[in-house]
Design a binder for these strands. Sequence first.
DNA 1: CACAAAATGATTGACGTCTGTCAGCACTTT
DNA 2: AAAGTGCTGACAGACGTCAATCATTTTGTG
Lengths: 350, 350
Amino acid sequence: MRKPTLHDVARAAGVSYSTADRVLNARGGVAPKSADRVRDAIATLGYERDLHAANLSRGRNYNFRFLLPKDDHSFFRALRAAVDREQDLRRADRILISVTEIPALDADALARALDAEGSACDCLAVVATEAPRITAAITTLRARGIAVVTLVSDAASEARAAYVGIDNVMAGRTAGRLLRLAHATRQGCILPVLGSVSARDHRDRLDGVNAVAAGETPALRVLPALSVDDRPDIMRARVTQALADHPDITGIYSIGAGNRGLIEVLEARQTRPLVVMHELTPVSRAGLERGLVDAVIDQKPAQEVALAIDVMKAIADGRDWHDPARDIIPTVFLKDNLPAPADNPQISAS
Amino acid sequence: MRKPTLHDVARAAGVSYSTADRVLNARGGVAPKSADRVRDAIATLGYERDLHAANLSRGRNYNFRFLLPKDDHSFFRALRAAVDREQDLRRADRILISVTEIPALDADALARALDAEGSACDCLAVVATEAPRITAAITTLRARGIAVVTLVSDAASEARAAYVGIDNVMAGRTAGRLLRLAHATRQGCILPVLGSVSARDHRDRLDGVNAVAAGETPALRVLPALSVDDRPDIMRARVTQALADHPDITGIYSIGAGNRGLIEVLEARQTRPLVVMHELTPVSRAGLERGLVDAVIDQKPAQEVALAIDVMKAIADGRDWHDPARDIIPTVFLKDNLPAPADNPQISAS
DNA sequence: CACAAAATGATTGACGTCTGTCAGCACTTT
DNA sequence: AAAGTGCTGACAGACGTCAATCATTTTGTG
């Protein structure tokens, strides 16, 4: 009835505990036929090593490091907060999480940080980009036995062990679908607003919205994308200008940050186009609540961080893990399905 | 640097390990001033007992039981599958999960099952209803030291320890918001379809959709709800009839099950109203993919089960846990943000 | 058959905690 | 002074595994 122990395995295999241990931990010096008998016994008994006991014995800790962009955007603040929270929650599981901040949008700095990784950590989580330097640095780390998980933004997929983040084409398509839904019986004209032209994520989202909005019939007209550098002031100026130039705009898809500027434009108007933006932040949340924004597409950074840690632990334990992609889906927030505000504390046990 | 052990605490407090242990585990027989010194030492050192070592030593297992409705609906099958999956995943953490199937929609049977609970399990998860018998049974269990977590459907909130499930009014409001979004510039007429009139969940969803669709201006007209007993055949007949009676129907909100019948009606028509339904099942998924359904509101049963187990473990450990409500939000699935199909296997470690 | 090499068994002391027993001490109470 | 009470410390044996040592047996080779 009880879970079998390695002693049980040894007994079943007709060898000593030492031998079973040598096989289990691949210490070598075991005759092939003994090794087979041990492996058979493991299989027939359904033995699984007790990881907690093993870690206790080894005095093992899991050292995971997050390399996060040092940036003042709400999204990265939320990401950082999520990591900090997990830091506390996972300590009891011997998981020690450290955070290194990297200048945002600086592939060189990130590559340098990756190269500088000592052997102090078992697994890295990185907000990556597809720059070749970064791919190279990740490959080097893999060769040294340190797995790298990409978070939010992917690197070349050959190098990293897993990607925990949304599919940005999917996110863009979702925005397009919402805009299309809202144009059920009418023509429309969509203004996409990029944060930065160079970011892969933003281009993917733009491709996605184009595929759905313009690629299906009846077509919505999609204007050339504005680019606002993720800055509210530029957002305000450019969007104001665009709305003046194109009075027929019926929808705005804000792909990046700087939405505070967009909200300011919207609240100054009597009528407004449909508005879809990204990331549930205090600003976008208020926009939804006040009826200035129709939908927010969010990637649930807290859940991403939690899942990333789960994957990192599985990697460190040499276990299989299941593809994170299925659980990380662009989430649609409307005015009516907003989660409770984040500030509420713990509920104590009864 | 190392995490302090109880030995460290004892040394810091100037008492023996035994005394520190007596304080930590409240065994009594310790002078108040010694106890205080131990507690001080725990606080200043930031000692946290190593739960894994403790459980190893005690030979402790967590016995959790799920009381699930025995029903052939896709949703409950998905719920059951999620529990089965967690059963494997959590075994390594000494969490043993058992499932008892209860005849669906039978409050008496559920109450009897609750009353019959021995002391073999540490915590129960139940798909409950608000029937007084059930509340009473849960209260009795609580008195016996067995906490009950409600799943998917709540009981009276005084009795249970936590509820892991969506807010169904929120779900209905979300459906209403989607329908409203799709009626941006036009009048409309919404047909709500109930699974059963008596289910609290369904009434809540109806209230929600009414509040948003009819309660805001400009109003959508909401027809009296059909009721189809969660059965595809009845769904098909009643919806066909309703569409004939009301040619001006522009939206259908299917609140319960039986959506296979609805899909059949839809695919027989050239033009169709907007359609919002609940729960991502093979049927609703196919409906989205084929463009017959506009949106599916899902409660992510797998995530609910995982979260329920997390809460049960926290309860069993006497830890605090954070309110599950924030993480369990009605999720909007459109054609473009569907997760990968469920059948894919594990991805192996590299 | 001798002998080295290889394989195996036996044992030990961790890891951090739990649980139990036993003895000793300083006090009171008789 | 004897007996009792309350508190404390010391110790030991688990739990399942790791990691190391040392002794012993079994092999294979010439």
